[in-house]
Simulated assay, not measured.
Amino acid sequence: MVLNVTSLGKVPGVCDANNKFLDIYVGNVGSVHDALVLRRSPMYKGSLYPPQGCFLLGDGGYPCIQHPITIVTPYRQPVASQVEARFNRHHAKARNVIERTFGALKTRWRAIFLRALEIRPTFAPKVVGACCLLHNLCVDADDLLEVNEAEEDGRDAEEEDPAAEGRELSGSGLRATLSAEVSAPQVLAACLVEHDYI
């Protein structure tokens, strides 16, 4: 599961590997910091995602936390080692799923998202939500769009909200563990074979 903010304003969304939205939160203005939008979302307040043993991938605008939801973010630039650089590369590749999902959403509904909407501002979140639901219906019906790989948007290098640090349980330990696993894939592969997950 991947968490990201799109250029549709501040719309954090969670999607699966099939480019289907699992959760979105609409209704914040673009000037609100990503971490604040996250803390306002029902997903965060109700600890709705991810399931036990899983985590969300977020870009650099989110805090790396383990509670009340688990979000793993990339290391801040400049990275301290090759292990951190390798982790950031793998993290960016995995996060491309959400970039493609939002890209397909904007491509499918380009008449809505690529021009100014002439509607009441209070109605705009309902339009975005409806487009996400219709996108999921299209995915279920195998009406898929081919979207070019998303360009890196540079957000991974952003710093987390300094005010948010200390308020959440840090996810740095989990990120360090994942970095070590990415740097030692033979250990991870042996673990998978040993447990018959392949």
Rank of each mutant, 00 (worst) to 15 (best):
L137E: 08
A111D: 14
D161R: 14
I119F: 08
P51E: 00
A80S: 10
I65P: 01
R40S: 07
G46Q: 14
Q77D: 14
V127I: 09
P74T: 04
Q66H: 15
P74I: 06
D34F: 02
E146A: 13
R108S: 04
Y62D: 02
P121C: 11
K45Q: 05
H90Y: 12
E159W: 10
L105G: 03
A141Y: 12
H67E: 14
L105V: 07
D143G: 07
E149W: 15
K45M: 07
H67N: 11
L144H: 13
L105D: 02
H33D: 15
A104G: 15
D142L: 06
I71K: 00
P68F: 07
H135W: 05
R108Y: 04
E149F: 07
F123N: 08
V127Y: 05
V37Y: 02
S47K: 15
G129Q: 14
A130C: 08
E99V: 00
A111Q: 04
I119C: 09
A130P: 07
P121G: 03
H135K: 13
I98H: 02
A85Y: 04
N96R: 06
V72W: 00
G58E: 08
A80T: 05
E84H: 05
L36F: 02
I98V: 14
D59A: 06
Q77K: 06
D143Q: 11
H33L: 01
L105A: 06
R100C: 10
C131R: 03
A130R: 09
G30D: 12
R110A: 10
G53A: 03
V97F: 14
R89P: 01
E152S: 09
S41F: 04
P162T: 13
D153P: 00
E151W: 03
S31N: 11
Q82M: 08
M43W: 06
T122W: 13
D143M: 08
A150N: 06
V139G: 10
E159K: 10
V79Q: 05
W109E: 02
F113N: 08
C64Q: 01
C138R: 10
D34C: 11
S47D: 12
L134F: 12
H91I: 12
Y44M: 05
I119G: 12
L134Y: 07
G46A: 11
E99L: 00
L137P: 10
